[in-house]
Amino acid sequence: MSTTGHDDTRLNGHGLTLAYDQRVISRDLGVSIPDSSFTVIVGPNACGKSTLLRALSRTLKPADGQVHLDGKAIDTYPAKEVARRLGLLPQSSVAPEGIGVADLISRGRYPHQGFLRQWSAEDEAVLADAMEATGVTDLADRSVDELSGGQRQRVWLAMVLAQQTPLLLLDEPTTYLDIAHQMDVLDLCADLHHNRGHTLVAVLHDLNHAARYATHLVVMKDGAIVAQGAPSEVVTAGLVEEVFGLPVRVVPDPETETPMIVPVDRRPQRA
C-alpha cells in the first residue's frame, strides 16, 4: 500500500506514518476516500481510526507521508482554504458557556469571512439553511447548555455544514448518545450524503450501524487497514473474528439486507 502513484480521489493519504510524539500508531498507511461516498472507518478501541481521521483533516501532521486534498498536499493550502473544502467535527468540541445555538452554528462561516467582511447576507442565508437541514431551526434562540445530547450533536453538525464543504469528516458523531439519537444522527448523515451530495467520512463504534449506513467501509486493526470496500463484501464472520476477536454470525439485516453481526452465544449450554 506504499504506492505514492496517481490517485485522483479528492481526499487520500499515502505512505502515512502517524505518531503522537514517539508513540507510533500507524506505519506506511494508505487510504483513498472514494468521491461521493459515505465512508465509515471501524475497528476496535485504540486501533488508530480517530488518528487516521485526524491526519486526513490535517489536525495531526503525519510523521511521514502526505495527505492530498484535491490533488495537492494538504499542508500547502492556507488554513482557511482547507476549511472551505473539508469540514471536521472532532470529538473534543467544547461549547463556550452560555453560547446560543445560532451563534455557535454561525461560527462555521469563519473560513468564508474576512477581517472586513465578518457577516454578509450570504452568511445569514447559509446559517438558516444549515439549521433547516439539521432540524434545529426551532432551537435557534436557545442556549447550547440547555440542549440534550442529541440536539447538541445536531447543532455541531449544523456548524460544520455551515462551512459549505464538499467533504465532511466526523469523529465518532454518535458517541454518548442513546440508541434513538444515534439513529437520528446517522439518518441525518445519510441525508447529507444522499440528498445534498456531501462526501462523508465518519469514525463509528458500532459495526452494525457502519454496515447499514456506509457505502464504503474501512476496517482497521493495530494501526493498519485490514479490509475495505462495500459492507456487503467486507463484513464476514472471519473478518470480524480476526479484527475484534469475537466469534459472530453474519445475517442479513431484516430491514436493509445489509450484513448484520450477531455475536455467537458462548455461555455453557443450559439443560
Binding site: R54, A79, V82, A83, L88, L89, V94, A95, Y110, Q118
Partner: peptide, 19 residues
C-alpha cells in the same frame, strides 16, 4: 475574533481554518 474560536476547542478551531 480568533480567540473566540479557540474557545471551541483546538481541533474545532483548526477545522474552521484558524491558525
Amino acid at each position: 475574533r480568533r480567540l473566540r474560536f479557540m474557545e471551541l476547542g483546538e481541533d474545532t478551531a483548526r477545522g474552521l481554518g484558524v491558525d
